[in-house]
Design a protein around this nucleic acid. Sequence first.
RNA 1: GGGCGAUUAGCUCAGCUGGUAGAGCACUUGCUCGACAAGCAAGGGGUCACUGGUUCAAGUCCAGUAUCGCCCACCA
Length: 901
Amino acid sequence: MRPGNPEALSQPYDPRRIEPERYAFWEQLGVFQPRPDLAAQPKGTGSKAPFVIAIPPPNVTGSLTMGHALGESVRDCIIRWQRMEGRETLYIPGMDHAGIATQNVVEKKLKSEKKTRHQLGRDGFLKAAWEWKEQYGGLIFQQERRLGITPDWKRERFTLDEGYSRAVLHVFKALHDEGLVYRGRYIVNWCPRCRTALSDEEVDMVETDGHLWHIRYPLKDGSGGVTVATTRPETMLGDTGVAVNPKDARYAKLVGSMAVLPLVRREIRIVADDMVDPKFGTGAVKITPAHDANDFQTGRRHNLPEIVVMDEGGVMNDAAGDFRGLDRFVARERIVAALQDAGYLEKVEPHRHAIGHCSRCNTIIEPYLSWQWFVKMAPLAAPAIEAAKKGRVKMFPARWKKVYLNWLENIRDWCISRQLWWGHRIPVWYRGDEQVVSLDPPPGEGWRQDEDVLDTWFSSWLWPFATLGWPEKTPDLDRYYPNSLMVTGSDIIFFWVARMIMAGYHFMGEAPFAHVYFTSIVRDAQGRKMSKSLGNSPDPLAMMEKYGADSVRFCMVQTPTGQDLLFDEKRLENGKFFANKLWNATKLVTMRLGDEDLSTVKESSLRLSLADRWILSRLANAAKDVTRNLKTYRFAEATQAIYHFAWNEYCDWYLEMAKPRWALAEQAPGEAGSGVLTPEQRDDLRTARWVSWRVLDGILRLLHPFMPFVTEELWQAIPHDGETLALASWPKAKKSWFDAEAEREVGFLQGVVVAVRNLRVESKIAPGKPVPVVVRGGQAQLDLLDRLASQVKPLARIEHLQLSRDGARPPVAASAVVQGAEIFLPLDGLVDLDEERARLAREAQKLLADLEGVKKKLRNQDFLRKAKPEIVQKENERLGQLEETLDKLKRAQQSLSAVRE
RNA sequence: GGGCGAUUAGCUCAGCUGGUAGAGCACUUGCUCGACAAGCAAGGGGUCACUGGUUCAAGUCCAGUAUCGCCCACCA
């Protein structure tokens, strides 16, 4: 047992003073490293299997947001809890190279130096990017230390590290060898600003007001024309056909004939295709196979030429004839004008539709025909679907399972090539007609490597096992895969969660984690997304400065799960106030503990008083509640349980009741009251000290995963066993501590105290003035009050407590009824009798309404017959209580009305 | 067009298996009594969005409606 250090609490609570020091303290002790000695049993068996969480790797360019703070609070809370439960824990940190985001940042920096990446060339650019990474990357981890999270920093991984990169390339080759990776010329989502292809998930669809232009295409034979409707007139330059529905009678005779494309004068064929909806627009669709995914399919079905009319920057190319060199939107205006001048434009309608935007830079996406690499997803999705259906991967909250399944069941192939430089370069080599997939350059001369890199998510989806050394068969991989839990935002359920599960099954044969917990998405108080441009994103570091990391953690962790959180800075006050309360309570307790080594005190040697039995019972309940709620990720309930117990039960009641007992020590300073105190008093003092210490210790343990800094600080200040609270054991709900009788009895005492306090206030008695109180009640109730009189009296400032079985009621008094016992506050000449009468009348009226409700229920035969017996009995008891209370109130009213003023 | 979620005190939200509506903040009144004014004590405040249904009993289960929000979707 180590003695406490009460002096540590002499200054007021200030998180800024204690938090940074504590982090260094934990790091020094090495509490973040996994302790294999704890995991006696092999993985996957029993509760002692290692508990593993991998961090969702933040972008190397990232800095800490409230969203990160929320995720980290949850992850670290669970990790710390599991560590205290005695499990070996591993929290894996790392960063994502974030292809497009990082390349954008580095290019911007180059621009400020009046350079472009093309001037530097590929190698020069990559060198600059790595330099940037070394200099600025990973800032977020410095910030996250401030939060008190406990990853094993020695295991930090980066998705572009040598080993990790091998894993990524290995996966590409493996999937290619299986026929699941293929190269093809298809329509992809193209961002003309980033000049790269994107996956479907990287495109945000935005409802936008646009136009539907109706354009007449004359027939070649001069016999009229066909009118098509389009939202993107500029693509007409690439039209190679017109499609109509085969069942559409209006156009039946045109099928097979040729139309002449206006402005371009190209002859294009009119074809019949089911994809056309006769009811939309004109029922005739212009076909631009190189600039529309639908048209591409249609074009292939009818062997129409594919003409690309823009370059990679969205500028019209040579195929655009007179419009070459124009930006696609300028070209749109010019083309519309030209069509109008030539009399081809029949109509323009307003039209609302969804337009794709680059999720990185918000540029409008251009469907673009190009050579890309794809992953065939359906075979990978199958086990991931089954895993969720069979519950092998559980999601919290469960409703996300549906979203997940819906996506997987309609999954489309994944475009994984990106026209960037920062990333894993595709391991494919070309020489003439030869094509080789190989991690290293093939032997021989003249090989040229594919220019493209892989989608960032093509590396992140390997995170749960690539961080552990895969594809090597490392001991870590054997020990720590599968992970236990994934905590992330629901916004990346497709990008990342679903893909990790697919990769887990495909490469490791089992799910990467058993549970997925989805946190809230943090929004501002008006419900807007946090964004840099709006400036509505609070800086977590500033929040920690102001309220403390403990408060940020405590308040963020208890946000609603998996739905939007409207963040309001004001909520953070709560945690700080709570920490402050505990600080002061601990200060009080440390001042009263005396010199005895409490760890040597045997609980069985103590005679626990009612208050002791009560608070121990409540502690057992709190331990049970916190643990149960942590198990199901119900953080709001878990924090509520410990908060309420610590503040409203331990501080508000137990400590107040302990004060008179501690005061015994002051009657006999020095030798723990020897000689002056009776043996019973000495025992009581020891008991009060032991229980208040023991319960405080329990509170600090239960709260530690949520507020690690202040709990550690306070734990060090009281007598404690072990070096750090972070490695102390998690409190168990001791069976022998549950004590329903003590809870009932203290409930009565609390009722009496509250009633007296209320009578005082209602009677406008000065707060400090001691008052006499008379209680009439059952023998058991009176005995209870008698036994705890010395503790109850100060709580309500009772000067003299008179207990009587059925003695006379004081003639002039304010009164109340608590569990059938009558409480009188004699008030000769002090009280406003009219007010007291009115108060009693109000009280009686309330009771009468309740009574009516209960009576009605008990008259109902169906209720008596069908409700569970214990419910009926409860109602009967309630009826008795209400009638008794009402009766006593009536008598109080009578006795008051008999009094003349 | 499909799916999901929300709607409970002035605000932000809890209410898990149906059985007398809760918390924090805000509000009212009163408190420098040696842990704490970041506090203490006592209070006020809700026909649980609406309509039907199931049930002895519904904030809680079912159906529908309304409003708001999110996600998915190849009507050009």
